[in-house]
Computed example of a mutant assay.
Amino acid sequence: MAEIEKIIVKFLNQESNYSELEKLETFIKNEQRIQVFNNFVKTQYLSTLSMTEYDVNKAKETIKTRLKKGEQTRRVYLSKKIAVAASIMLLLGMAFYLLYDNRPVKVSEPEKQSNLIVAGTDKAILTLENGNEVALEKGKKIQTAKASSNGEELIYVDKEQNETDVKEQMYNYLTIPRGGQFFVKLSDGTEVWLNSESKLKYPVAFKDGLTRNVELIYGEAYFKVSPSEEHKGAAFHVLTKSQEINVLGTEFNVRAYNNEELISTTLVEGKINIKKGEQSKTLRPNQQARISRGSDNMDIQEIDVSQEIAWVNGLFSFNEKPLGEIMTDLSRWYDTEVVYENAKHKSFVFTGILERTETVEDILKLIEATSEGQIKFEINNKTISIK
């Protein structure tokens, strides 16, 4: 029993690994042991709340789902610790929902409109060098002279396969609509993940030995840049309307939406230099540069990068995040409009890690249930009203 108690404590402290989650799953299959699990949840994590035993059957289903999904291969760099923490937080979030759901809190019934609001998918519009537009979506294969797509990713021909010298720089654009995301591998091997409502401009092929320039016109993108030593020392630059990023073979995230005041660049691995006006600063891993539009000041902060790049791994990560910012992210991913009946609701904070495949109704119910009656959601067609 001592071993399982340690596992439960580690689980509640977000420190359990995959094998320990498997042991915990086996343990709570026994109905007589559910009380042990409940007691630990109550005393170790929810001791300040008036808690009754919640539905552990749902907890079992959640653990099983997380374990199955944990076996799938991820195509993006994220540590195992982040992935496990995400699974744990999702379960704890469900625990909170079940806890409050047992209280006499009236919850709206947005399921009636569930067919109108769906989670985002892989989709994009590719604008070719001749101006033609091609829709990229799941199940649709596209082949051009320089690139191919299976509807989930766009892959450009690498320079070894390109027999002709690049004499004139030709550009493509990849536009991601609301409710979409997409992955593109550029001709130099650089990998880019694009979030909803984003647009990237990039060369069809890079000129050998010259600086590799791409432009994030707006939106959010995660870059895994091919090292310069593989391209005769050619540097890689990412341009936005407010800054220029000089990349030295690295992984980083850029968020530069048109309707957001703040532009943030987060370094995950390697080294980047950011220029804004006369300023030039170098970031270390786990640092974020923040620039307000219309300002030349650049603020550098130490942060938890897992919060910033969770979207790349299919997650929403909210750490005491204001509801106003949360709903902005949700509205982009689920392609909805948001209406506030009281502006003060924008400042309500919420913490949780949830999968982007969850229905918007489930996410709203969780936020509503943990608000202790402060927040109410209603869905009408594709508009979410907050009361």
Rank of each mutant, 00 (worst) to 15 (best):
N259I: 09
N259Y: 01
N259W: 00
E261C: 09
E261F: 01
E261M: 14
E261Y: 01
L262M: 14
L262V: 14
I263V: 15
I263M: 14
I263G: 07
T265L: 08
T265G: 09
T265S: 13
T266V: 08
T266C: 03
L267M: 11
L267N: 11
L267E: 12
E269F: 00
E269R: 10
E269N: 11
G270T: 08
G270A: 05
G270N: 10
G270Y: 02
K271Q: 09
K271S: 08
I272Q: 07
N273E: 15
I274C: 07
I274Q: 10
I274P: 03
I274T: 08
K275Y: 01
K276V: 10
K276G: 04
K276T: 09
G277L: 06
G277R: 10
E278L: 10
E278F: 01
Q279F: 03
S280R: 13
S280N: 15
S280C: 08
K281M: 14
K281A: 09
K281P: 06
K281V: 14
K281R: 15
T282N: 10
T282F: 00
L283R: 12
L283M: 10
R284L: 15
R284N: 15
R284V: 13
P285T: 07
P285H: 05
N286E: 15
N286M: 13
N286G: 09
Q287M: 11
R290Q: 11
R290N: 11
R290P: 00
R290Y: 00
R290F: 00
I291V: 15
I291C: 11
I291T: 14
I291F: 00
I291Y: 01
S292F: 02
S292G: 13
S292C: 14
R293V: 06
R293W: 03
R293K: 15
R293D: 10
G294Q: 14
G294S: 12
G294M: 11
S295W: 01
D296N: 11
D296H: 03
D296Y: 02
N297T: 13
N297Q: 13
N297E: 14
N297F: 01
N297Y: 01
N297V: 09
N297W: 00
M298N: 13
D299K: 13
D299M: 08
I300L: 08
I300S: 07
I300H: 02
Q301W: 01
Q301G: 05
Q301T: 13
Q301D: 12
E302Q: 10
E302W: 00
E302S: 07
E302D: 09
E302I: 07
E302M: 06
I303L: 05
I303R: 08
I303D: 03
I303F: 01
I303C: 03
D304R: 06
D304L: 04
D304P: 01
V305R: 06
V305F: 01
S306M: 06
S306P: 02
S306N: 13
S306R: 11
Q307D: 11
Q307T: 12
Q307E: 11
E308M: 07
E308D: 10
E308G: 05
E308Y: 03
I309R: 02
I309L: 03
I309T: 06
I309A: 01
A310H: 04
A310I: 07
W311F: 00
W311H: 01
V312F: 00
N313V: 02
N313R: 04
N313P: 01
G314L: 04
G314E: 09
L315T: 05
